[in-house]
Design a protein around this nucleic acid. Structure first.
Lengths: 236, 236
DNA sequence: GGTCCGTTTTGCGCTATCGCAAATTGCCGG
DNA sequence: CCGGCAATTTGCGATAGCGCAAAACGGACC
């Protein structure tokens, strides 16, 4: 089997403090897999057979209600882990993970986790930090949904996406994977119609440049100002 | 110093799999402290000097925006940990913790965490499970806020509170600590006015019995039905 | 027993946002 | 080069829930 290049992953927070040979031992337990654009890595409710580290591409994690509505839990960028169901005591995935671009992952069988953690306790503490950070972020999201209007929430969402997965261009920052208005709606707790209206407005003002599943922030700073603003837009 | 009775805490998830003498060693590092009703255990932004285990009482964790709005992150019941800032890599508390009833906690100085975790790796994995569960719950909250109307969210919130901290009465279940309409509003992302209207309505129907900072669920099952229902109330 | 303060209730107009419907656009496959 | 489909835009009511204001209420403390 082809060995995974340790240099690609050595600096990830997950592996902070590991020696090369330890890293190697951990990586040996994983197999790598490729998921073409729009294919499912795993589905909500499915048995949690593996946990993952994204190497290339982008993955959307989404949670669906019994009645079929869904929200985007997060977008996974290269270097991030996902599908950690078992580490947090679940036997089934609580969300669906879909590759939004051709993606490559490392996958560890669920069964390896207890053994790895026992041998490398730092794995647990590193994962704890990661999960803790996500918890904070999710609390922030709740706070935003409770206190801000849709326009500001969308602004924040775009800024976060740009920060996490933005590609610098001469004329702005492009979000580096296909993302629809519907996706943004599901990230911010609104409808695709409202998102479309807002983005159209911003495009008029030259703040962004839109396309089919494409968004370029032309004026990140102005969007930032929008995001912080409370309701009133100011004097006419 | 008075020793903490290990039997009180031995069965908590945090200490799952520990031997009595190990437990003892961990507990020896903690001091216990009492917080009278409405006093702050710690404040958002304050340096994270300790982490806590609630022994008696109830604590509200709330997060405040720069502009002063706040949400209730959660209510802590006896046996639960809180203020785990350092375990997840923060140096300051991300929320304010307030005793809503006279409360007693165990407090470990932040500095003891790395040592304890090193000596007892199970602490890290247990904490990982706890934090992971909270992450799931918070995602569920986001899902609800995105897809349900206020009435259903309030119903869910009450049911959860009843489950976590409900006291069984002949005529229903009482939420076992003082909680205002404002608090419920901050849990569900709405205003105290709307909560008040909803609860008044339910009281008319005999589903609940309200009082000053007091709520008794008289018909938990009917409230459950309400919580699951989508918009339309049905034929007149 | 009286007073004061925090909580709760309720009325009423307002509006941000939804929901539906229809038109438009841009991309992909053949 | 030509459909055909998915994504996007846009118009137009409908309305859930907000925000303000004021009144009613209930305790706690003196």
């Amino acid at each position: 089997m082809a060995k995974v290049d340790t240099s690609l992953v050595a600096n990830l927070p997950l592996f902070a403090g590991f020696k090369p040979e330890e890293l190697d031992e951990i990586l040996r337990e994983a197999r790598s897999a490729r998921f073409p654009k729009n294919s499912a890595v795993f589905e909500q409710g499915e048995d949690a057979h593996s946990f993952f580290l994204l190497l290339h591409g982008h993955v959307r994690a989404a949670k669906t209600t019994p009645t079929g509505e869904q929200i985007v839990v997060r977008y996974v960028a290269p270097g991030e882990t996902f599908g950690l169901a078992m580490a947090i005591g679940l036997t089934q995935y609580p969300a669906t993970a879909t590759a939004v671009d051709d993606s490559v992952v490392l996958a560890w069988p669920t069964g390896t986790w207890p053994r790895l953690v026992q041998k490398f306790p730092a794995l647990a503490t590193n994962t704890l930090q990661t999960v803790g950070t996500r918890l904070q972020e999710t609390h922030t999201r709740v706070l935003e949904m409770s206190t801000q209007q849709v326009e500001q929430r969308v602004a924040h969402a775009l800024l976060r996406l740009a920060k996490q997965s933005g590609k610098k261009l001469d004329h702005g920052i492009e979000i580096d994977f296909p993302i629809s208005r519907q996706d943004i709606a599901q990230m911010t707790g609104t409808t695709l119609h409202t998102v479309s209206r807002i983005l159209s407005g911003w495009e008029q003002l030259g703040l962004i440049e839109g396309g089919r599943q494409r968004i370029i922030l032309r004026e990140p700073h102005k969007i930032f100002v929008l995001a912080e603003q409370s309701a009133g837009g100011g004097p006419a």
